[in-house]
Design a binder for these strands. Structure first.
Lengths: 112, 112
DNA sequence: TTGATTTGTCCTACATTGTTGCTGTAAGGT
DNA sequence: ACCTTACAGCAACAATGTAGGACAAATCAA
């Protein structure tokens, strides 16, 4: 993909990244949790697979880091893989936002 | 891709759509023009092919409509294919923006 | 202790998007 | 004629987006 500047984020990647950030504020940001955050905030459905895949790719690109928790004493409380966004991710997010904002600003007032 | 709600826009599609809107305010929104708009606004490089491809796909999805102009009396002034965004495109853009905004709002104040 | 249930992870397989680089076309200039 | 400028468009490949499971481990209930 882009090879000049930081390799531009896709739309879903962007949302997942933001959802990790949101989810990580109180709870841990792990797969299902991130999915839930994404769905409630954006009112858009996504599948588990989509989220896990994206989480995986983002980690490979160095935009997320992860660690495993121990199992919790709840019904089915398995070990979770929790994510944190990295500095690069924050930079990439800000860049994406700036770009989109600039375009939206150019439109404001006309037919939108 | 998504088959539930309107088939979510990709990131680049979104930007191209917005660039068409921007470019169409004064001039005609045709390929190279849209590319220029995109690059100046977002400060991000893209190739001609990428833009033409995307324009094409968006038209096939009913998010853009196009018409041909006659040639202009300039050096190399060929006929241009000009684009206009459709109602669906506007709806899709607004939806994308809403989703992103909701996520950004959920983050505001913390580590961003 | 076997099995159902819950909470989670991860993979397979495929559709859609993103991108480059090149080819093609027409008009004006010289 | 031939070069240059201003466009359009394709082929081919890389990366992303997505659904739909299969699998793993813990707890509960009999």
């Amino acid at each position: 993909m882009g090879r000049e500047t930081p390799p531009a984020l896709g739309e879903f990647e962007q949302m997942v990244l933001l959802a990790v950030l949101c989810a990580g504020r109180d709870d841990d940001a792990y797969g299902l949790n991130v999915l839930a955050e994404l769905e409630t905030r954006t009112n858009r459905r996504a599948s588990r697979g989509a989220v896990y895949m994206t989480l995986d790719r983002l980690e490979k690109k160095g935009l997320l880091s992860s660690y495993l928790t121990g199992p919790t004493p709840e019904r089915g409380g398995r070990a979770k893989r929790c994510y944190r966004v990295t500095k690069s991710a924050l930079a990439a997010l800000r860049a994406s936002r700036r770009a989109l904002t600039a375009l939206w600003d150019g439109v404001r007032g006309s037919e939108i």
